[in-house]
Design a protein around this nucleic acid. Structure first.
Lengths: 187, 187
DNA sequence: CGCCGCATGTAAGAGGTTACATGATTCG
DNA sequence: CGAATCATGTAACCTCTTACATGCGGCG
């Protein structure tokens, strides 16, 4: 009864969670992840569709071939009561600690083997990615400010997520700038 | 000639890089990663040994069954000249942008489905992990201060890596504390 | 005697990406 | 007419972890 807390496949958790918000197609899920969760989550079609099939086989979601909007084929997935219970139960299993894998820092550690200029280029690219991320976060912030009928609790959660991204990215931007200077001093 | 920059398997890059520093056994590599790179890198035995075999097949490293220390079996891997050239060439391919996957933020996004207390528990666990990371970084910092014959360039690289970890973790600690307060206010 | 550290590796499988195959509709 | 967007899925493949199998030597 006690013992190891079974880990939940995070993709299944994410899909079930998104479907708990509202019914969606696989395509919708992908778009939602790209637009709203981009800075802390990612999913590919090649993973979404098989996982949806798996959730369906376990009766956690259902699929209906929706009356095609504009004549296109659309399969809308909806969470079941059992799915909702499962989602809540999954929260009991704590998330797996992330395994660190930062290729940029690895390169810096092996910096003495790097051809000249490469590390500066890589730090610049890293910084550009962060700047892009901050841009997306600002977009989310703006859309959030416009929402009036959102639930209070959800707004609070979004503020936590936003501040995570913004504070993190701002710190990383400062680090990139400092590191850029240090690398230039090294010659 | 132009076109897609081939991605390098980051594990092979890491192994070749560590062997460029000095010859090591698979066991040594694992220990080194755990002790020195823990906050930004990870490797498992089940990946290290097959990858070493692969690098060997490509003649980038060699293996010698070393005179056993204390009567135990040890296979020491050494980088070849070709391996050094390959390592330098690999730097030309920029690192793949990391795909974001933060389960804690995902849970916060789905916070309204979470049973009471779960998010507080998860934030606390996250913070504990960060505190542990900071502890390890302090250890590295201390060991670095004791090293006198380290090359200047390497010390500079280590300082960059350390400041990354320390600034990041300190920011995350503050975020955890703020988030803890926000969650308590939500009730 | 049993556990810990040293030391090597394999096998099975989870998890995930990329590339492909297909096709309608809309917009410029 | 061509490109972009909408839309679904599969197949092949890569990466990586977990669990297992094996065995010695030192320490309490």
């Amino acid at each position: 009864m006690a013992g190891r807390a079974a880990r939940v496949n995070p993709t299944e958790f994410a899909l079930l969670g998104l479907l708990a918000e509202r019914p969606r197609t696989g395509y919708d899920i992908k778009k939602e992840v790209e637009e709203r969760l981009a800075h802390f989550w990612s999913e590919s079609y090649g993973h979404i569709y098989p996982m949806l099939a798996r959730l369906r086989k376990r009766r956690l979601i259902t699929m209906r071939a929706a009356g095609r909007r504009d004549g296109r084929q659309r399969n809308v997935y909806t969470i079941t009561a059992s799915g909702r219970r499962t989602l809540v139960a999954w929260f009991a299993n704590p998330p797996a600690p992330p395994r660190p894998r930062n290729e940029l820092l690895l390169r810096l550690m092996l910096g003495r083997f790097a051809p000249p200029g490469v590390l500066l280029r890589d730090v610049a690219a890293y910084r550009a990615g962060i700047a892009g991320g901050l841009g997306q976060l600002r977009g989310v912030e703006r859309r959030l400010a416009g929402e009036t009928d959102a639930e209070v609790a959800d707004l609070a959660y979004w503020r936590m997520i936003l501040s995570f991204g913004i504070e993190l990215f701002e710190t990383l931007e400062r680090w990139c700038d400092a590191t850029d200077r240090s690398l230039r001093e090294l010659g």
